[in-house]
Nucleic acid binder design. Structure first.
Lengths: 270, 270
DNA sequence: ATCCTCATCGTACGCTGTGCGAGTGACTTC
DNA sequence: GAAGTCACTCGCACAGCGTACGATGAGGAT
């Protein structure tokens, strides 16, 4: 059992000093990353192999390894390239932290929907690239100007980012599945529904709920769901912002009722 | 370029009727799933190959394919097995929907931290298994008893699930990285910090914020962050529950200020 | 004893990431 | 001009992957 080599983020490793070399190298890191991005968008994650990427660049497969030390490293670069698409405009109004958050959330969601292959990567690769940092910084600054400070600032920004990620992930999973079902999405969906109905026979409430569901305009429904949760989160944060500004203590400092504590402890021991 | 076969969820495919066969087949689906789960927990995703799994079961690699048609299908089964660990106790108090949500959130988070390999899977495989449905159903029922109905019910539950997923994902990514860095976590972290400082030189605010950060007790910090966002979300939902019960319209039906609309539209076109 | 079905397994195919060493051409130094 | 250095490219090879396929055997049913 060969232990796998340690993971070192591109952004954490020493970059060799640029020495003068040939004028026109055939390959460049930017070029490779761009080609990889195109390939991923066109055919998805499992279509990206070093050989295919090399072929697309008119180069040998292993030539890539001069510019990039790993496939993981390449993926880190591509991922940060996507973060570059998430642009948050300067919003100078006072208390426009809500707008900044909303623009980020929708931008991030759009990026994830446009590049579905990136979603699993978020669970494996860190997001320390310059573009990811820039996005994060913009959000931080907007929240800071609104009055969030210290840990509350981190908490609030983290909450918005978390919701955005978590809300979009299953959406992308769903779309991936529909896309992969080659047959018409309709027939595939009814097939799935029938099976789920069987599996969910034990839960009559669930069946009742599903039967009233409208699957015709899924896109709109997903958007509404996303917006609902986002606004709910922002409202919750706004309450905390007021507490923060007034330096008033929240009425109940902890979320945990005794019942919750007990259940969480039990789960922890299991 | 061979087009990949379509994806068909385990839960959506026809299961062959059980015919009477040998009394003691050497392998069983449950056994395989359990062994796969152990292997994944012990050595992570990329250590799970059909050959290794077969070896661990004292069987040939391809024998597994009698009980499971795919590696993806096996992973779907293992994933649902993990959902089985997320148990939400019966909370019969009125208005205990908050407790139910909190217990789910902490349970799900714990499961994800315990089985880090599952996080990327959430972006690829659907969660239609019986255990996943059970968890979802319990949450739904608790919210319904509290007064959520119709689409608002879906929205509210979805918001809690989304936040939980999205908040835990980067946590797991982080832990994975630290674990993979073979060298002491401390030295690895300082190394990363140095590089990030260089990369973030353009953002003086960010540097200032990071320097006041305390990295000593990361676990506690992450827990606090998680709880903060969760309670914020629940507060936001509680406001909506009251609107819902009073059938009063929210003061501002949409989150979108003109500035946000413009920005979102621009992103959509890009 | 014969047949039929369930279940297991060995082999093989095409694919993957990537380590290694040889090759190539341009620039620097004499 | 000659020699050397160095950036860069590439072919080969290795170990491993998922899994299609056909052979093989082990029971129960007849």
């Amino acid at each position: 059992m060969a232990t796998k080599p340690p993971f070192i983020s591109v952004w954490a490793r020493e970059t060799p000093p640029p020495r003068r070399g040939r004028e026109h190298p055939a390959l460049s890191r930017e070029q490779i990353v761009r080609a990889a991005l195109e390939l991923l968008d066109a055919e998805g994650m499992e279509a990206l192999s070093m050989r295919k990427l090399g072929a697309r660049l008119g180069a040998g497969a292993t030539s890539i390894y001069w510019h990039v030390s790993n496939k993981d490293e390449l993926l880190e670069l591509v991922l940060d390239e996507v973060y570059g698409e998430v642009r948050i405009p300067e919003l100078t109004e006072p208390a426009s932290w809500r707008d900044a958050a909303a623009v980020f959330a929708y931008g991030m969601r759009q990026a994830m929907l446009k590049h579905p292959w990136m979603v699993p990567l978020l669970g494996v690769l860190p997001s320390f690239g310059p573009n990811a940092l820039a996005v994060n910084n913009t959000l931080m600054t907007a929240f800071e100007e609104a009055g969030f400070t210290g840990k509350t600032l981190d908490y609030a920004v983290g909450a918005v980012v978390s919701y955005t990620l978590g809300a979009t992930t299953p959406e992308v999973t769903w779309l991936n599945m529909v896309a992969r079902s080659e047959a018409g999405a309709d027939e595939w969906l009814t097939n799935l529904m029938r099976q789920v109905e069987v599996a969910a026979a034990d839960y009559p409430d669930m069946l009742a709920r599903y039967s009233t569901e409208d699957f015709s305009d899924m896109g709109v429904a997903k958007s509404l769901t996303f917006d609902f949760g986002l606004v709910a989160m922002l409202d919750g944060l706004e309450v905390r912002l007021r507490w923060h500004l007034d330096e008033s203590k929240p009425p109940d400092p902890s979320s945990a009722s005794p019942a919750v504590d007990a259940a969480v402890d039990a789960a922890g021991r299991g």
